[in-house]
Design a protein around this nucleic acid. Structure first.
Length: 561
RNA sequence: GCUCCCGUAGUUUAAUGGAUAAAAUAUCGGUUUGCGGUACCGGUGCUCCAGGUUCGACUCCUGGCGGGAGCACCA
């Protein structure tokens, strides 16, 4: 529709003898200003020395009545052309949405192409905390938006099972007497890690011991260390799997630093023209490209994150049978490193470098203060979810909802968390206010879920009362909610193009608000109302949009709450 | 010190260079005894500072101020 209007305007410009200028056709921020607006007269004004409103009137005079589905064109404000669509357009869109069903909101832009999305990336031996929950929410949503573009998406999780942090944990295990003789849990590992990290910070002998351990972990020469390592790694990974089940995320492939490490080292050594020796280490000198120098192999000859990530790009391509695009979603602490890495990659793997994209997102802070896995002052993800689920359960019981199952409590808790983390731009740091996420009022995941469940319910009531969804007699004026509905496809595409899941959140919230206004003023389950069948169809299209939109955010849409 | 990100109602956040800067929350006041009140309607209240570009700037440019991250062997 946008394209149709743009073309018509372009033709009109030619007809009037105006120069061909760049203009935009967009949705006005206020629905009272029509469904589409064009700024062409404002752009032309200075070029041809006429007031914008005069130009706009000329264009409107010609274009009115020329475009199918455009009811009228008005000149407004400083000289905008406002296009109002016909009732038939909205009616047709409602029907189209309902026909498309689960495919509503998707397109074929990336059909036949493979996109790899790497996200979450928790490190074994460390706690899976709410920061991982945040990064998982972002990555999962990006992956789903990619799927909605028709791409074949491969979800990938990359985990640091070697490196200094593991040495921290092993050192802590030894110091705290955690051994394979007795059962230990992921929580014990978290404690051990915090202990080792603190010891390393103190420097001196413990730091030396940790560096020595790090080397042993790599070369596997010490049986005692190997035993601790193998048991710890297995317990960590099993623990992560239980979390993935809870947060509804599934990975196609897992990559480990223990595999990419040796390959990364090989790569660095094989490209001396790219990686130069400096102070005993192998570095990439980024200064030539406006970046900074980064170490790829340290002076002990061990690969750093950078070298491993380099090898990882190729590993992914090999194991997944190639890819058309590769997204790596991490917190923005990595952003600067990644620029250097990508530059280095452009010399080693030019084709892969071109397909690689890093998305750095902000970090979550709690209202109570910053959390850090180094001090052990973190909130474990599972405990956090459980706590919110318990509060959700209390609310369900006290308000007399039909379903008080633990599954529903958990779904609501996760909906609250995901919404809260995705509601703003992912670039920005965000503050997680627990009280707010738990309030379930206004802008919230449960608000959207509740609206969805209520539509399901009213549609059932409508059916029972004999409202048949066959009649398409619609009131002359389209409801406001209809004017938002057809934009869903555009929003999904925009959210994908800009890597901005919050666009979907904002849209769904506006849609739900608009529907709730509609619902408060219009009776749907009333067989005596001529318009009831049409209103039920509108409600059904909103239900579908909420369902598909929530899916893009990995939030469940229960039919009953 | 250098690089990157950010600065919007009391608070948390929106706004492809466009119209009266928008929601939620908090606060104040309402909802025709209506299909699920976790809802709906209304009031109060905001672009860090100083220049510049533009018909038009929260948005772009320059310089400040303030916050976060990074800046050689952690990830």
């Amino acid at each position: 529709m946008k394209q149709v209007i743009a073309t018509a305007i372009k033709d009109t410009l030619g007809e009037l003898g105006f120069p061909d200028v760049a203009f935009t056709v967009s949705h006005p921020s206020d629905l009272h200003h029509g469904d589409f607006a064009c700024n062409v007269a404002l752009v032309l004004a200075s070029d041809i020395g006429q007031p914008p409103r005069v130009i706009a009137e000329q264009i409107a005079g010609i274009i009115a009545g020329q475009i199918e589905y455009v009811d009228r064109v008005e000149v407004a404000g400083p000289g905008f052309l406002n296009f109002y669509l016909t009732r038939d357009f909205f009616t047709a869109e409602i029907a189209r949405a309902r026909e498309m069903g689960d495919a509503w909101g998707t397109n074929k832009e990336w059909a036949g192409k493979r996109i790899v999305v790497e996200y979450t990336d928790p490190n074994p031996f460390k706690e899976f905390h709410i920061g991982h929950l945040f990064t998982n929410s972002v990555g999962e949503s990006i992956a789903r938006l990619a799927m909605m573009q028709g791409a074949e998406v491969k979800r990938v999780n990359y985990q640091g099972d070697v490196g200094l942090h593991v040495a921290h944990a092993i050192y802590g295990m030894q110091a705290l007497g955690i051994s394979t003789d007795s059962a230990f849990t992921a929580k014990d590992l978290g404690r051990a890690y915090a202990y080792g990290a603190n010891a390393y910070k103190e420097g001196g002998e413990p730091a030396e011991a940790i560096r020595a351990l790090n080397k042993k972990i790599y070369d596997r020469t010490d049986d005692g260390v190997n035993a601790l390592y193998d048991a710890g790694r297995a317990i960590s990974l099993a623990y992560f799997e239980t979390i993935y089940k809870v947060i509804d995320t599934q990975f196609d492939e897992y990559f480990f630093e223990s595999e990419t490490g040796p390959k990364g080292k090989e790569l660095v050594l094989a490209h001396p023209e790219v990686f130069t020796e400096s102070e005993g280490a192998h570095v990439f000198q980024g200064e030539k490209y406006g970046l900074h120098t980064r170490v790829f192999l340290n002076k002990e000859g061990l690969p750093t994150y950078e070298a491993k990530e380099l090898a990882l790009a190729n590993e992914k391509a090999e194991r997944l049978g190639g890819y058309d695009h590769s997204i790596i979603s991490t917190s923005n602490e990595i952003t600067e490193y990644f620029k250097v890495l990508k530059m280095a990659m452009s010399f080693v793997y030019p084709e892969l470098a071109m397909k690689t994209e890093h998305i750095g997102h902000g970090t979550v802070r709690l209202a109570t203060g910053k959390m850090s896995s180094r001090t052990g002052d973190v909130i474990p993800a599972l405990e956090f979810i459980q706590e919110i689920a318990e509060t959700a359960h209390e609310k369900i019981v006290s308000t007399g909802f039909t379903d008080a199952s633990p599954e529903l409590s958990e779904a609501i808790a996760l909906g609250a968390i995901k919404y809260a983390t995705l509601r703003g731009s992912i670039l920005q740091d965000s503050v997680f206010d627990k009280e707010r996420a738990l309030s379930f009022e206004g802008d919230s995941g449960p608000y959207l879920m509740y609206t969805h469940a209520r539509i399901v319910s009213v549609l059932e009531k409508a059916e029972v009362s004999g409202v048949s969804l066959i009649s398409i007699i619609a009131p002359e004026e389209a409801y406001e909610v209809e004017k938002l509905l057809y934009r869903f496809e555009e929003v999904v595409t925009e959210a994908w193009n800009e890597r901005a899941p919050h666009k979907v959140v904002g849209y769904l919230t506006e849609l739900a608000g608009s529907f709730n206004t509609f619902y408060a003023h219009e009776k749907i389950a009333d067989a005596t109302d001529t318009y009831a069948p049409y209103k039920a169809m509108v409600a059904d299209a909103v239900r579908l949009t909420l369902k598909n939109g929530l899916w893009a955010l990995a939030i469940k849409a229960p039919e009953r709450m």
